[in-house]
């Protein structure tokens, strides 16, 4: 054969190549690739798990936010209801208080009226007494004044002739009488 081509040697080379390729595949290529695939799968799985956890967290977040929005709505509703209830209670209380106040006011009025009447009744007796006393005083005062006037006029008329010592004694006696009379009346 030209170029020393030898079919037997070619076949020997082929056998050698087949052995080598199969051997390398079994000993090196396949195990390394398997290891790489396993690692890749592990990372993929981890990534998927992470993604799933992330999605789950997002879903939960959305759920919670929606629930939170619902809760806020519910809270505002409850607040409104509470406000209404409070308003009702307050108005009821106010009514009661007003009623009580009215009753208290009426009682107080009644008491005041009774007191008033009592005072007025008491005072009217006093007034009567005072008026009587006053009237008596007026009467007495007018009689004293008259007596005093008479005395003064008598004194004036007698001054010219009578002594000044007699007049003094008479005057002091009159004053002492006046005081003693007033005390007795009281």
């Amino acid at each position: 054969m030209p170029l020393n081509i030898n079919w037997q040697q070619i076949l020997l080379h082929l056998l050698n190549l087949v052995i080598l390729i199969v051997g390398l595949y079994l000993l090196l290529y396949k195990p390394v690739k398997k290891f790489m695939k396993k690692r890749e799968d592990a990372y993929k799985e981890r990534e998927e798990n992470t993604q799933a956890a992330l999605d789950n967290a997002k879903a939960k977040e959305e759920e919670y936010s929606s629930r939170l929005a619902g809760v806020e709505e519910e809270v505002s509703k409850k607040r409104e209801e509470a406000a209404k209830e409070l308003e009702g209670v307050r108005s009821e209380k106010l009514r009661q208080v007003a009623k009580e106040a009215d009753e208290m006011l009426d009682a107080a009025r009644e008491r005041a009226r009774k007191e008033h009447d009592r005072i007025i009744n008491g005072v009217s007796d006093d007034i009567k007494e005072i008026v009587e006393e006053a009237a008596e005083k007026v009467v007495l005062t007018s009689s004293v004044n008259d007596a005093y006037e008479q005395f003064l006029s008598a004194a004036e008329s007698g001054a010219k002739s009578a002594h000044a010592g007699k007049a003094k004694t008479v005057t002091s006696m009159t004053k002492a009488d006046k005081k003693g009379g007033a005390r007795k009346k009281k």
């Binding site: 170029l3 020393n4 081509i5 040697q9 070619i10 076949l11 080379h13 082929l14 190549l17």
Partner: peptide
């Protein structure tokens, strides 16, 4: 070796 090269080429 030509035989080796031929074997590789043909394979």
């Amino acid at each position: 070796d030509i035989n080796g090269a031929i074997a590789m080429g043909f394979l």
